[in-house]
Design a protein around this nucleic acid. Structure first.
Lengths: 229, 229
DNA sequence: CGCGGCTTTGATGTTCATCAAGTAAAGTGG
DNA sequence: CCACTTTACTTGATGAACATCAAAGCCGCG
């Protein structure tokens, strides 16, 4: 993990997450800002860490996860660029509940939480923008979990392949950003069954697998499996 | 459903949900406030309804749910007193995504959404309070779904019985507020298996069933089943 | 009274997890 | 650079957990 600085005032990334800021507020935020680079696999936040910074992802991909009673990893959500890293716990709890790590090399902007709060106290516009953004973000997480829980094996795999394509890579041909095991942890299957289903899809000519690269060949069929499965 | 009015300025219920309001803001909010009474089973919000009011539950119990592709009802969360009714979609979407109905006779306070937003714009204290409350509320929903998804049949039933006792009824002896079928919809089982497991617990002397009344007899064992299941 | 919806129990079937075993790929140290 | 270890991936066979199906009793309600 490395640090760096950049200019916030014209930062497109900041604008999408933190809006309606006056110039002097931007300065006050950004004097304490840190931009951090994380390598694939690096841990960004550990459960139990005190909440000091507010994070948002500029580029890369992160996972939000925890370990269940029997020590198995469970992925709660995937953090995409222009979005919050970590759940909203940060606004109501002094300590992080979950772990966050980088799935790919990632750039994260860290702003002191107390600065955010103190600006929100004085700038309602900003606070309302934050509320709206949070609301959207959380709803998506809940919706995704709901959608997944309703589906069977094939439906879940289809869903997640389409999710990677449409929400993350913006292409139907991409490198799968998660290991088979991680996919399993995200959609609540075993790695064996993830593999099995991918093989099935491949045999049925719905997808094409080449190493870590995947091409979704029959989108229509895939969407059907996703909806009905 | 009936309407009524009450005085907001000293309302303990309002204070817990909407804090840091100045006197004139309370008045501005409450002039447009409606207090509504819903009978058990009544629908409070339908998916697709425009978001005009902000709801919080003063007393009673509500369920937040939707219908999946095959028309089966799925319960997302149970709304308890002193909390928001409906998910946070209200802050970012113009229309409700889910349906809400009363599980028991309920009293709901309805405040115009535009009033809430316009006050938040001018009162950062209020906005930050709202953010914290929202954050807590949503995290609980996500956590509950996560906990449930990790558990097997017996674990889920144990969890939900303890949830009813500790979070809703504040007693280990209570009337079950949901039908067997609704419990199934909430914890993702079939009604048959809900019943079967309750029967098992009853035979194992962990609980006692008398009509709709239930008594959790062996809390220790129940918690063990909940944790390990 | 009789109809429909909820509840309950038992029997059967399907889906998915688990177990086992083997191959490939990727890091590690001499 | 090559043996060695470790980790990921893959396939098949077996078993357990839960859904589904079927049938009967119960209650509330028109």
């Amino acid at each position: 993990m490395e640090n760096a600085t950049c200019d916030c005032s014209n930062c497109k990334y900041r604008e999408l997450v933190l809006t309606n800021l006056k110039d002097e507020e931007i300065n006050s935020l950004c004097d304490f800002k840190k931009e951090k680079f994380y390598k694939k696999g690096e841990i960004i936040v550990k459960e139990g860490d005190p909440v000091v910074d507010f994070f948002y992802l500029k580029s890369g991909l992160v996972k939000n996860y925890f370990y269940n009673q029997i020590g198995k990893e469970q992925i709660i959500s995937i953090g995409t660029p222009m979005n919050f890293v970590s759940l909203l716990t940060v606004f109501s709890e002094p300590y992080h509940k979950f772990r966050v790590s980088a799935l790919t090399d990632s750039v994260i902007c860290c702003i002191r939480m107390d600065k955010i709060k103190s600006i929100a106290l004085n700038n309602g516009q900003f606070a309302v923008g934050l509320i709206e953004k949070m609301s959207k973000n959380t709803d998506e997480i809940i919706l995704q979990k709901l959608m997944l829980s309703m589906k069977n094996m094939r439906g879940r795999i289809a869903y997640i392949l389409l999710f990677f394509a449409e929400k993350i890579n913006h292409s139907y041909s991409y490198e799968i950003p998660l290991r088979r095991k991680e996919i399993a942890q995200l959609i609540d299957l075993t790695p064996e069954n993830v593999i099995r289903t991918l093989s099935e899809f491949s045999k049925e000519n719905i997808i094409k697998l080449e190493g870590e690269k995947i091409t979704l060949k029959d989108i229509k069929k895939l969407k059907k499996i996703c909806e009905l499965g």
